[in-house]
Nucleic acid binder design. Sequence first.
DNA 1: GCCAACGTTGGC
DNA 2: GCCAACGTTGGC
Length: 144
Amino acid sequence: MAYWLMKSEPDVFSFDDLIAKTKNGEVEEWHGVRNYAARNNMKAMAVGDQAFFYHSNIGKEIVGVMTIVAQAHPDSTADLNAKGEVVWECVDVQSVKPFPRPVTLAEIKATPELSELELVKLSRLSVSKVSETEWKLLCTMGGL
DNA sequence: GCCAACGTTGGC
DNA sequence: GCCAACGTTGGC
């Protein structure tokens, strides 16, 4: 199993929105990614992988955990390229549980063990990898 | 294939 | 609102 971190602006789509949408078994398409590195990360995801939900711009904190429930598939909100090929893909996710205590970017930056976290090093990447060590530490910091 | 110009993201 | 970092585009 692999671990990931996915960003969303909470005024567009928040973790609470995800909980409301998926609590009854519905899935949420993580559509809208238009960056090759982020897309490649999604294509590398497997069903059962876990991902943090990070609120960018507003809050700037990890607010909860979600799970990948469908492998990458064509993004229905994206146009095809000039050759009619699918370029942009997305995975489907469901919420798992919120952090009892959100972990802020400031806290992450103040933690030496998290200095290599892709969220910090590649700040513009909207879908990034998290190592198992980083995952466990962040869950502890979040009160899980 | 290089690189300058421009656009976008996201933290501050 | 500003700006750094980075991606994309287009001229050569």
